[in-house]
């Protein structure tokens, strides 16, 4: 069996700060493997038995290699980096198109395709479903538990409903925050992982046209972006006397 995990490298959002103008201070913020991607990888590794392969893939700049290296250290067997200047500026549609092309061409035999529920930086959570549709496969979002008994089953959390489904082979799953037991990789694994070659694929290798990927293949465009931090300040009221302050609040109702 082959499990494919699509991962993403993101800036460490917990460390992002803003300057006085409200602009993001990007410089110096380290890039990490997206925590949600890590969850998906853990699920794949927990399903893996002898003879199975876990393949990780990411689309990104050459630096994204470090995220793949981390996956290999954690236990993945092979890694693909989809990198090309033409991929820059991709929206959901173009990203999904690129990933779907990769799956069709290189890992069409995958038993499961796993994604994180969302990425910590973009927060859109739309890529898995678009990939599923482009490949014509079934999708299972918000999985909190994936198990292999008689075939695969997944438990999905829709917020108001917990649903357990039988999962056909080749389905696309997005993994929501669930219970995953993390093992620290051993030293031996670090050394082993450092010898695995990360395969790089560009647009031509994926057989995609220049107008299918990146900015050109996108269906949305950012018109403007506005810093929302304003100089607005509310009136300051002295609340050192709780009774007076409480009366003040009561007056508003």
């Amino acid at each position: 069996m082959r499990y494919v995990v699509a991962v993403k490298q993101v800036p460490d959002t917990t460390l992002i700060d803003v300057d006085e103008n409200g602009n993001m201070k990007r410089a110096g913020v380290p890039s990490i493997l997206d925590p949600y991607s890590e969850q998906a990888l853990e699920v794949a590794l927990s399903l893996k038995t002898d003879g199975d392969t876990v393949t990780v893939v990411t689309m990104g700049p050459p630096q994204a290699e470090s995220a793949l290296r981390k996956c290999l250290e954690n236990g993945a067997d092979e890694a693909y980096l989809l990198t090309d200047r033409a991929f820059a500026g991709a929206d959901v549609h173009a990203t999904a198109r690129t990933l779907a092309a990769f799956v069709e061409k290189f890992v069409d035999d995958a038993s499961l395709l796993l994604f994180g529920k969302q990425a910590a930086d973009g927060d859109t959570a739309q890529v898995p479903s678009e990939v599923a549709q482009m490949l014509g496969r079934e999708q299972f979002c918000y999985c909190v538990k994936v198990s292999k008994e008689d075939g695969f089953t997944a438990v999905q959390d829709y917020g108001d409903e917990i649903r357990k489904c039988r999962v056909p082979e080749g389905s696309v799953l997005s993994v929501s925050e669930g219970d995953v037991n993390r093992r620290l990789p051993s030293i031996a694994r670090y050394i082993e992982a450092s010898h695995i070659e990360i395969k790089k694929l560009d647009r031509i290798a994926l057989g995609l046209g220049a107008y299918s990927v990146g900015m050109n293949g996108s269906r949305t465009k950012i018109v403007k972006s506005v810093n929302v931090r304003s100089e607005h300040r509310g009136t300051v009221v002295d609340g050192s006397d709780p009774v007076k302050a409480a009366e003040h609040i009561r007056g508003m109702f």
């Binding site: 100089e231 509310g234 009136t235 609340g239 709780p242």
Partner: peptide, 11 residues
């Protein structure tokens, strides 16, 4: 305080 209409300073 950047979005509040009123900020009551107290416990």
């Amino acid at each position: 305080s950047e979005v509040a209409d009123e900020i009551i300073v107290g416990d």
